[in-house]
Structures are given as C-alpha cells and as structure tokens.
C-alpha cells in the first residue's frame, strides 16, 4: 500500500527544468542572535545574496564618534573570483521522503551568514572584515 502512495512525491526535475525542493519539517528552532547582514529564512527562496563590510577597530582609550572610510583600506576593493561556468549534466532527482529535524539550536548568525530551513536555488554571500588597532602611544 505504501509503495502505491510514494510516486506522488517523486518528480523528475529535469523534465520541468526547475528545482523541486523537499518539504522540511522542523519541530523546534532556537536562535539567539542575528547580526550584520545575516538572514534566518523559513521557506523556499530563489536567490540569497547577503553582503557585509566590517571595520573592527580596537582603540586605546575607547571609541567615541570616529568616522572611518572603507575606501581607505584596500581589502574592501578586492574583487571575488568570477563564477565558474555551469556544468551541464542531465540529472534526475527523486525525492522519496521529506527532511525532518526534531530540534535546531543556533546561537548566532553574523556577517552575511545564512541560516535557512527550506530550499534555496542560489546563494552568493560576500563578506569583508578588516581588523586593526589604534594605540595612543608607542611606548605604552
């Protein structure tokens, strides 16, 4: 009886030229923090492209209201490698059962990070992080 029901879930995705995403069941999710261009997504998405630029300054004596320009630091003008050319393979995917997760606990998502429950066609995340320190005196 079970075998007769199963073909309802089975789809040849190459015939439709569209990705068939599995259903995902998650009983419980706990997330404490989402910061700096991050995403927590429940559901299906076509494309996710989070982007973040960070200057992490440690300054002696504390930071009050400084203004820093990203253009002053060469790391922020670095270019990422161009995408690879797509591989053409006739692929058939048969989804027999959904995904099930009982409990997920994610403490933090940060700096263009993604935490997703569900399907996503394309992900393109970019992050620039530059650390430096500013001291008052060299002798200290």
């Amino acid at each position: 009886m079970l075998k007769k029901l199963m073909p309802m879930l089975i789809v040849k995705e190459a015939e439709t030229n569209k990705m068939i995403k599995r259903m995902v069941y998650v009983e419980e999710i706990e997330t404490q923090s989402l910061a700096i261009g991050s995403v927590m997504e429940i559901g299906d998405v076509h494309r996710a492209a989070p982007y973040s630029r960070i200057l992490a300054v440690q300054k002696e004596g504390g930071v009050k209201s400084d203004v820093y320009d990203f253009d002053d630091y060469s790391i922020f003008s670095l270019k990422s490698t161009p995408p690879l050319s797509p591989i053409q393979i006739n692929s058939f995917t048969y989804h027999h059962r959904p995904i099930q997760v009982d409990q997920v606990r994610v403490i933090g998502v940060s700096t263009a990070g993604i935490f997703q429950v569900g399907g996503v066609d394309h992900v393109d995340a970019t992050n620039y992080t530059k650390h430096f320190r500013v001291l008052e005196n060299e002798e200290q």
Binding site: M19, I20, K21, R22, V24, V26, D44, P50, S52, I99, V101, V104, V106, V109, S110, T111, A112, G113, I114, F115, Q116, V117, G118, G119, V120, V123, A125, T126, N127, T129
Partner: peptide, 9 residues
Amino acid sequence: GSSLFLIGD
C-alpha cells in the same frame, strides 16, 4: 563570515 547553514535543498 558569509557562511551557510542550510536544512533543505
């Protein structure tokens, strides 16, 4: 740092 944690396809 532009990482991905995905439950899905």
